[in-house]
Amino acid sequence: MRHALACAVALLALAGCKLDMKQQRKLNPYERTDLWPDGTAARPLPEGVVAQGDLARDAAAASPPPATPELLARGKAQYEIFCTPCHGTAGLGDGMIVQRGFPKPPSYHTQRLRAAPAAHFFDVISNGYGVMYGYGDRVAPQDRWAIVAYIRALQLTRAPALAEAGGGGRP
């Protein structure tokens, strides 16, 4: 009985409150205020603040996942969306935009890019390089690693013969 009475009193008290959420007091970011000594309503972020999702994104960017058929399929799909306009379907740097006058990117099949670590491609996709702008805000880290795996697969399609690469006749 006491519980029911307490609930009834609480409901009556809440019914008497005027909670008008549409007219809350608030400060706009560029408004002047006397609330803080510097007189601005915009407050700096506290030291050490991390945006939601940044730690997971950083962890995903830290190292490549193992190459699987699913990862390569995802990489191919993402490569076709983001990379083929400039790099072309075979990674030769002969995409449609290049055919229309845009500067030609290097072929993925050059010795320099064959020898480049996977992290180089991930960094270029993330931050851009030369005239290529970064895709870090458009392509998730997992998809960037998938694209890198697909680029490596493209490079294998035109790998020089073992004899040409100095591998001799040994398998």
Rank of each mutant, 00 (worst) to 15 (best):
A159Q: 15
P65N: 11
L27M: 03
C17W: 04
S63V: 10
H120W: 15
G130Q: 05
A56Y: 06
A118P: 09
Q24Y: 02
H120F: 13
A56Q: 15
H120Y: 15
V124P: 02
T84F: 06
N28W: 03
P105R: 00
P29T: 01
K18L: 15
S126F: 03
P160R: 03
P65C: 07
A56L: 15
P46Q: 01
A4R: 05
M1P: 09
D38H: 01
V9K: 07
G39P: 13
P103H: 09
L12C: 05
T40W: 08
G88Q: 02
A116D: 04
Q155L: 08
A8R: 12
L156P: 00
L12N: 01
P46R: 04
G168E: 08
G53L: 12
R138K: 15
R57K: 13
A140I: 06
G93R: 04
G167E: 11
E70S: 03
A60N: 06
V9N: 00
Y129R: 10
P103F: 13
V148Y: 07
T110W: 12
D123H: 00
G136P: 13
L156C: 01
P117C: 09
Y150P: 05
P69S: 09
K18W: 11
L72P: 07
H3W: 14
F102L: 04
R138T: 12
A161H: 01
P105L: 04
V139F: 10
P117F: 09
K26M: 13
P106A: 08
V139E: 10
R158K: 05
I125K: 04
Q52H: 04
A60H: 02
C17H: 08
A8H: 05
K22I: 06
L45K: 05
Q24N: 02
Q111A: 14
F102E: 07
A6Y: 13
I147F: 02
G91P: 06
R152Y: 00
G53E: 05
L27D: 00
A10Y: 06
P85M: 14
G134R: 11
